[in-house]
């Protein structure tokens, strides 16, 4: 939170409050310079790489001893495996197990990126629309393609609510169609918006800390928000994953 400290110093000097709640989301080249080509290693790339490292440490190194009686790390790895596996089986049924590695990839990336983003001075990659939109579009496209490959034209039955009165069905079909295409939008903006909101609110409270009178309150508020953000970091990963499972179920069993 260097920018915050600088902001605080700056505020102390000038006697006013300076808020830079969005500065923490700026994507910068890692090794200086101003040009940002598509291959430049940036802080976003660094923190994505660190999430890969976190996943390797947890899931690969944690399970490397293959102990029947697990160590702490191994039980966490098994817990994560069982959590996502149960979610996939409960929602999609047995056919969904084939797509379990894909769902697990999404879950592990989002949850590790969210938690790494909570570290001070870190960069939360999942607070960027560029990232979450790609994740949501991947889900949307693969689910749509999968639905048509598995069910053919019967996949369109998803929009034709056969339990509704005949007169209502075209209207419902339009509504269903719209809600189907809004899915990736809400899917991506929910994740990015939640993270951005939490981090920005913490920064705003940090900006208030420059005033000596309110600084204890703002420290308390930051602590409380941080606790909430830890919860949100997990819940948003869970929600993203469970919605992926729900969409996957729609593709596998399109009938209402």
């Amino acid at each position: 939170m260097a920018t915050e400290a600088q902001g605080a110093e700056h505020a102390a000097e000038s006697g006013g409050l300076v808020f830079h709640p969005m500065d923490q989301f700026i994507v910068k080249p890692l090794f200086g310079g101003d040009t940002l080509a598509w291959y430049t290693p940036t802080n976003a790339a660094l923190w994505m790489g660190l999430s890969i490292v976190a996943i390797i440490v947890l899931l690969v190194m944690g399970s490397s001893r293959r102990a029947v009686v697990p160590s702490r790390m191994q039980s966490v790895a098994e817990l994560a495996y069982g959590f996502v596996h149960k979610m996939v089986v409960d929602i999609c049924g047995k056919e969904g197990v084939k797509y379990f590695p894909y769902v697990m990839t999404l879950f592990m990336f989002i949850v590790s990126a969210n938690f790494l983003g909570l570290l001070p001075l870190s960069f939360s990659t999942t607070s960027h629309f560029a990232v979450t939109v790609v994740l949501a579009l991947l889900v949307f496209l693969s689910v749509t393609v999968l639905g048509f490959v598995k069910n053919g034209a019967a996949f369109l039955g998803l929009f034709w609510v056969s339990s509704a009165p005949l007169a209502l069905r075209p209207i419902l079909a339009i509504i269903e169609l719209i809600s189907y295409f809004v899915r990736p939008v809400s899917h991506s903006i929910r994740l990015a918006g939640n993270l951005m909101a939490g981090h920005a609110v913490i920064k705003v409270f940090a900006g208030f800390a420059a005033l000596t009178v309110v600084s204890p309150v703002s420290v308390l508020a930051i602590t409380a928000m941080y606790g909430l953000e830890v919860l949100v970091a997990f819940i948003q990963a869970y929600v993203f994953t469970i919605l992926t499972c729900v969409y996957l179920k729609d593709a596998l069993h399109p009938s209402h």
């Binding site: 598509w38 994505m48 697990m104």
Partner: peptide
């Protein structure tokens, strides 16, 4: 830039997993 690194990350994680 972000999309490129994200795709790289996802592919690596998928392969590892």
């Amino acid at each position: 830039n972000q999309v490129f690194w994200l795709v790289v990350t996802l592919v690596v994680i998928y392969l590892i997993l």
